[in-house]
Structure formats: C-alpha cells, structure tokens
C-alpha cells in the first residue's frame, strides 16, 4: 500500500517543485530559507506518506504541509509578524488603485493599461512582500496558487471566515501599496 503511495507521490509531487518553491519564497522572502522550507516539507510528507489518501488532492496536501512547516519551524526564528496600523486598514479600500487611477482627467490613459505597462514584476513582488505575513500567506495560497477557501483554511488552520477577511484586507493593502508606487512613478498626483 505504501509503495503505491510512494509511487504516486514521486509522480505527482515532483512536478509541483517550482510552484511550491515560489510559494515558499513569497512566504519567507528569503531564497535560502525557502529552499529549506521546501526540503523540510518534502521530508515530512515522505515520512508521513501513510496519511496521504491516494487519489485525493496531493497538491492541497503539499501546500498544507508547506504552510505548516513554514509557520511552525521557520517563522519562530524571526520576529513576530509585522503589524499594520488600524489606520492603514481603514484607508485601504477594495478598488483603491483603480479609483485613484480612474479619477484622473478623462484624457489620462486606461488604468489597466498603465498597470500592465508601467509596473514591473519587481514592483508587484515588492508590494506583495510588504503585506503583513498573515495576509500575504492567504493571498499567496488563494490568489497566486489557486487553492480553494477550504484548502487555505485547512493549510492555515483557521476558519474560512478568517481566510476571507485576511484576503480582503490583503488585497486592499496591496492596492494601497501599488497606489503609493503609482504616485512615485508620477502616474497619479499624491
């Protein structure tokens, strides 16, 4: 039985390496720590392979182990997650960036085009990295990696309602950060 599981694991988990490393990198914001988180996650998954039900969602299982490994083994080495002031939440709204870009003169370029054209990959990565950890992790798992609410909730070991509110705040803060960057680029007045 375990041989079947090991075979399935080898076949299906190895192709997930790039995306799992990517998620670990966004969680840790540190390439060498990301490598350790991924390696440790594979080691843990391999060791507890008998808990994996063949034919069930291996990807969700791996993300759960990855998130758990990061939170329990690696985050403790660092300071507590950063806190964002209540003020920042209150100012953050869902369509902050869109609202700011579209409130310019009617002759200004299409907001979406500007976001696609003027912001670099680095700008997006930085904005994501600036999110407080608990929001960043939720956004990475749901928006970037495409896990379901239930899968994110079980990876983070929080209720679905908490996932929803972390996502809402995370995305709103992301738009606020991107707006600040748009101001720096001169796309919108301060």
């Amino acid at each position: 039985m375990n041989d079947d599981r090991r075979l399935e694991f080898k076949e299906k988990a190895l192709p997930l390496l790039d995306e799992l490393y990517g998620a670990a990198l966004r969680m840790t914001r540190n390439p060498s720590m990301a490598e350790d988180v991924v390696a440790e996650s594979f080691a843990r998954a391999w060791k507890s392979i008998d808990q994996f039900q063949p034919g069930t969602n291996l990807r969700a299982w791996m993300y759960r182990i990855l998130t758990n490994t990061y939170i329990t083994h690696f985050r403790k080495n660092k300071r507590e997650p950063e806190k964002v002031s209540v003020d920042a939440y209150e100012k953050a709204d869902h369509f902050h960036l869109y609202n700011k870009l579209s409130s310019r003169a009617p002759s200004a370029p299409d907001p979406a085009k500007e976001v696609m054209g003027r912001f670099t990959n680095e700008d997006f990565r930085k904005a994501l990295d600036l999110l407080p950890e608990e929001y960043r992790t939720a956004v990475v798992l749901f928006d970037l990696e495409g896990l379901s609410y239930q899968e994110v909730a079980s990876a983070l070991d929080v209720p679905i309602g908490t996932v929803r509110s972390r996502l809402a705040r995370g995305r709103a803060l992301l738009q606020t950060t991107l707006h600040q960057h748009a101001v720096e680029l001169g796309l919108v007045p301060a």
Partner: peptide, 12 residues
C-alpha cells in the same frame, strides 16, 4: 493576472 505573472519561479 499581472500579479500571478510577476512571480515566475524556478526551483534551484
């Protein structure tokens, strides 16, 4: 979409 594309990751 842009956010997703900003993060093309290759495992070392």
């Amino acid at each position: 979409e842009r956010l997703k594309k900003s993060d093309p990751c290759q495992c070392p």
